[in-house]
């Protein structure tokens, strides 16, 4: 498993989660979120929702989940 991230410009940064044990429940949540997001985009497209509204919906949902995810990760880091 790689422990570095490489930006498009070639800059290499260490994986900030190296050494952090991610609980199974968080892995499962991340997996479900990814699936839910893909399902949302498919359903919005099928319902004929405008591209602009799809972009807004995805942005809002991703930002909300990100805030919650950061809170969860901070809690886990305090426990580690």
């Amino acid at each position: 498993m790689s422990h570095v991230y490489e930006w498009r410009d070639g800059t290499v940064i260490p994986d900030p989660f190296t050494g952090l044990e991610i609980p199974d429940a968080l892995h499962a949540s991340l997996h479900r979120h990814r699936e839910n997001l893909a399902r949302l985009v498919r359903s919005l497209q099928s319902a004929g929702v405008s591209e602009e509204q799809i972009e807004t919906s995805v942005t809002v949902v991703v930002e909300s989940y990100r805030d919650e995810l950061l809170r969860a990760i901070k809690t886990i880091m305090r426990q580690a």
Binding site: A25, H33, L37, R39, S43, R71, I76
Partner: peptide
């Protein structure tokens, strides 16, 4: 339409996951 109901189902899954993620943060792993 069934497509519109499918949209609501997608949002419901995301709302349920928000709840679940909060619970994960309240558990000592």
């Amino acid at each position: 339409t069934p497509s519109q109901i499918e949209v609501l189902k997608s949002f419901a899954a995301l709302a349920a996951e928000e709840l679940e993620l909060r619970r994960v943060a309240q558990i000592d792993f």
